[in-house]
Design a protein around this nucleic acid. Structure first.
Lengths: 127, 127
DNA sequence: CGGCATCCTCCGTGATACTG
DNA sequence: CAGTATCACGGAGGATGCCG
């Protein structure tokens, strides 16, 4: 599944632009306002500078994020969402609203319909 | 970034449940109504049965999808969204709405702010 | 038809070290 | 501070073959 250009389908387009586990989380951190490189790094426990740079550069290419360099000492770089990036707030909100409505996968009361070979989901956890 | 249980943050929870490029697309195909295995396969050009099974099983574990086996000849299996899964429609809609509002990344008229070291995004395409 | 088993590839990511 | 360079890993995903 290698995409050379953006797909037609909106959902697929979204996935092509915000791919990987970190992408969406970075956008989340940028929603409140501009952030510096280190601020993002500290706000995203576990992310490596390599990954952060990579995602940020991709967003820049897509026109989701604007990178602004202030020639100071010490150097300062700010990342801020473009208008297009800001519109992602609605999507993230929808994601969060849905996810918080999902109970931790423990009580899956599967109501049998046909031959529901109901594998005991009661013991299933997130591996 | 290995998650053993669902994160607190809604966005992160969402990403943990609908990870990978195919997951969301599968949900998209299930939104209109129940689908059979082969139907999903044909609706998702390029997906392998391995991946399709894997994602479907994960959704089942999460309580997003219900798998129903009809003991017929030939065998028939239907996948349908649970109530929780149906609520994903809003999220997918938000994704699609946003993505279709994003122009193909060619005209990024970056309006300089400070020292916008505007790397010529004009030649940048989606690799 | 609807899988599962096995092997292999790809790439997002992490760890570490180094630079302007 | 804000990266870049290099190496390595892991898990999603693909290819193929076999089974109920």
């Amino acid at each position: 599944m290698t995409v050379t250009c953006l797909p037609e389908c909106g959902v697929a387009r979204f996935l092509a632009l915000l791919n990987g586990p970190w992408a969406t989380l970075i956008v989340r951190e940028l929603l409140p306002g501009p952030r510096r490189f280190t601020e993002l790094r500290e706000a995203l426990p576990g992310i490596s500078p390599h990954t952060l740079t990579s995602r940020l550069r991709q967003f820049e290419t897509y026109g989701i994020v604007i990178r602004t360099t202030y020639p100071e000492i010490p150097p300062r770089v700010e990342y801020r969402l473009t208008a297009a990036g800001q519109r992602l707030r609605e999507v993230l909100d929808a994601m969060a609203a849905w996810a918080t409505s999902i109970p931790d996968p423990e009580s899956h009361s599967v109501s049998s319909a046909a031959t529901q070979n109901a594998a005991d989901a009661s013991t299933a956890h997130i591996g």
